[in-house]
Computed example of a mutant assay.
Amino acid sequence: MPVREQPWPAGTPCWVDCQVDDTARAREFYSALFGWEIGDSAPEAGGYLMAMRNGRPAAGIGPKPSGPTMPSVWTTYIASDDADATAEAIRAAGGTVLVEPFDVMDVGRMLVAADPTAAVFGVWQSRQHFGAAIYNEHGAYCWNELHTDGYRRAQDFYAQVFGWVFTEVGDGENVTYATFAPGPGADPIGGINDSTLSPGSAPPYWLAWFQVDDTDAVLAAATDLGASVAMGPQDSPFGRMGVLMAPQGEAFGVIDISPPEGSPS
């Protein structure tokens, strides 16, 4: 069981949460699908719910902020040692700070921003809450992936703000895709997909992926719980995967990374 008991390095996707209209409904759905333990929140938390697996924070569920109508979404947060400095770096690189840095009680400091292609992400400066304390196992997030029609522009932005180094892994014709790492020679920590090769795709967005033990079974269970399958199940070089739209409309991916039965180990 991969666990984390210290802050994630700056520039690493460190947390995911969803913003929905009905947090109680989302709690029921994700608890049933992933086995999350989700208790009630303290009054000062503003209705934000912490999803736990094996007693460790796995993800968050929160109400949508007041203001203009927005769709239900999963948000990827990138670790920072200084949220205010990162906000300035975002502006300097051509991004937009949508929600200025603010303290979240005593647990951390955060902001919400959009890259130059309009994909929204969060930045988390940890204090008491480091981010995900469990990952890369059934019911925990395992990958974060940007889908954008501004592929090169987005790479330039994230390289400037977070120091990411990109490695092209697609064929450039059917798939234009790169993994990103915090520096040369480091292990990949996420990916970026050129959505112009997928006609009719959604506006730029970050997609959170959760690891599962059986993709087909999870897609079937999610459908029974009111979700819809947007993609899959299908095999890939990385595992058997699918993309779901939860009952309130937020998209997320699921992937089983175990080798197919009968394949070489």
Rank of each mutant, 00 (worst) to 15 (best):
244 L>C: 06
48 Y>W: 03
96 T>Y: 02
234 Q>W: 04
58 A>N: 10
223 T>H: 10
123 V>L: 07
105 M>L: 15
100 E>D: 15
253 G>W: 09
254 V>C: 11
232 G>E: 07
58 A>S: 15
9 P>I: 02
11 G>N: 04
134 I>S: 12
245 M>V: 13
129 H>Q: 10
20 V>W: 01
115 D>K: 04
86 T>S: 14
9 P>W: 05
237 P>A: 07
123 V>S: 04
146 L>S: 01
82 D>V: 14
177 Y>Q: 09
247 P>D: 02
28 E>I: 06
17 D>F: 03
128 Q>T: 11
140 A>S: 15
62 G>Y: 02
236 S>G: 14
24 A>S: 11
232 G>D: 01
137 E>T: 15
31 S>R: 09
149 D>W: 03
57 P>Q: 01
176 T>L: 14
261 E>A: 15
99 V>E: 14
239 G>A: 05
48 Y>S: 07
231 M>P: 00
127 R>M: 01
76 T>I: 02
250 E>N: 12
76 T>K: 01
31 S>H: 07
152 R>D: 12
131 G>L: 05
79 A>H: 08
235 D>G: 10
197 L>W: 04
34 F>G: 03
169 V>N: 02
143 W>I: 08
202 A>S: 13
193 N>H: 13
182 P>K: 11
237 P>E: 12
242 G>V: 12
81 D>H: 12
263 S>G: 03
265 S>N: 13
223 T>P: 08
20 V>C: 05
83 A>R: 01
247 P>H: 11
114 A>R: 02
242 G>P: 05
119 A>G: 02
15 W>T: 02
25 R>D: 12
164 W>G: 03
45 A>I: 06
144 N>Q: 10
162 F>D: 01
265 S>D: 13
91 R>S: 08
253 G>Y: 11
71 P>V: 04
160 Q>S: 12
242 G>T: 04
230 A>C: 06
144 N>W: 00
185 G>H: 04
120 V>R: 00
99 V>Q: 13
7 P>W: 00
